[in-house]
Design a protein around this nucleic acid. Sequence first.
DNA 1: AGGACAACGGTCT
DNA 2: AGACCGTTGTCCT
Length: 166
Amino acid sequence: MKQLNSVSQLNFGFAPTPFGECAIVFSEDGVSALVFHENRNAAITDLKNRFYDIELQENNAKAELLCKQIFDEKAKTKLCVRGTEFQMNVWNALCEIPVGSTATYAQIAQKVGKPKAVRAVGTAIGANPVAWLIPCHRVLRTDGSLGGYRWGLELKVKMLEREKKI
DNA sequence: AGGACAACGGTCT
DNA sequence: AGACCGTTGTCCT
């Protein structure tokens, strides 16, 4: 996955998904954010926070096309995100969890070469900017319980169930 | 099965 | 420097 470096402008828009409406931020280089929200204002606040230094241009038509591609087809979507080196490592590790299976926070910590940084892995996963595409929902606690989810545990469960069927 | 708790490491203020 | 966290292992009841 690519690192988003200094750009002045990105596209964003709202679009329907099987899990409710999402807000998505994107460019030629790939998806920079995909978030769920209670209402559009909350989404905008969230995104302005993440991209405080970048101008966001609304383009819902493009956003809908992109989401169709993401959730209908199984084509791989390019990613272009911003994060610390540690976070990038963690997110890359998440992308290696196969569809339909799960991993634990401890396993991810192991994978990024910092077996004791479990707690930090948790926060890094929580900072994931791109729901679904970076499959942070596939990470559970070591004891098998759900752990947390930034956009609500209910959504985490829905995503896991949908993947089970594929 | 479930609660309390210390230790852990990255990130934010 | 201190606090916050999508955790974990251990030690309880």
